[in-house]
């Protein structure tokens, strides 16, 4: 474990907690893409199948349990409890356009052709693009609530910090996973446009508004 990865995991944790706080306090899922949350749930389910078979550390297990349960809870809140506030008309990104290419790529490009490893690879590829429905929805509505933009900033930062973690592990632990690194770079690049808007607008106290 290194500081980059620890801070990255804490950013990820903060993002998920921020999202749950937003939903619970505002009693609304307005502006949230249920599709992205479904994809994130799928990412955790397919990645953490080794939760019981492969013990890494208490920290690893606790975080996996929290990520799994919180992502499933978020999907539940969006599609059942606060369904009345879910803005389905703007959450129209076709998930199959992400699921099918990620599945095919995971079958073709992986470290080992075994079910667990292909599912892990699928989860890595899917995580890289899972935020697209949310970013697409913001581009359609033209704006995002401030707390939603904090959520996105924390979520985008987590994988950016992981890139530094991979650099660190490459130089000091001689550990390198090209699949995770390439997907992680793609994932972080997808947030760049949002990062620019967040830093130039939200941090200036303005609402996140996309140029019409």
């Amino acid at each position: 474990m290194n500081a980059f990865r620890l801070v990255g995991d804490l950013c990820h944790l903060a993002a998920i907690v921020l999202l749950l706080l937003k939903i619970w306090k505002s009693r609304s899922v307005a502006g949230l893409s249920g599709k992205s949350q479904i994809l994130f749930g799928l990412v955790f389910v397919t990645r953490y199948l080794d939760l019981v078979t492969n013990f890494v550390s208490p920290y690893n297990t606790i975080m996996k349990v929290f990520f799994l349960s919180s992502s499933i809870a978020t999907v539940y809140l969006i599609y059942t409890k606060f369904k009345a506030t879910y803005d389905g008309n703007h959450d129209t990104f076709r998930m199959e356009f992400l699921l099918i290419p990620c599945a095919l790529l995971a079958i073709v490009v992986n470290h080992e052709f075994s079910p667990m490893e292909i599912l892990w690879t699928f989860s890595i590829y899917l995580e890289a693009v899972a935020i697209l429905p949310q970013l697409f929805m913001i581009s359609k509505t033209g704006e995002a609530e401030t707390i939603t933009s904090h959520y996105l900033f924390a979520l985008g930062s987590y994988r950016g910090l992981y890139i530094m973690n991979w650099l660190y592990r490459y130089y000091y632990e001689n550990n390198f996973d090209v699949i995770a690194v390439v997907a992680g770079i793609v994932q972080t690049v997808l947030y760049c446009d949002f990062f620019y808007l967040y830093i130039t607008k939200v941090l200036q106290g303005k609402k996140l508004q996309l140029p019409a």
């Binding site: 990865r5 990520f67 992981y162 973690n165």
Partner: peptide, 10 residues
């Protein structure tokens, strides 16, 4: 099964 495939990251 090449055992360096233990994924120790979240």
């Amino acid at each position: 099964h090449n055992h360096n495939l233990v994924h120790d990251e979240l």
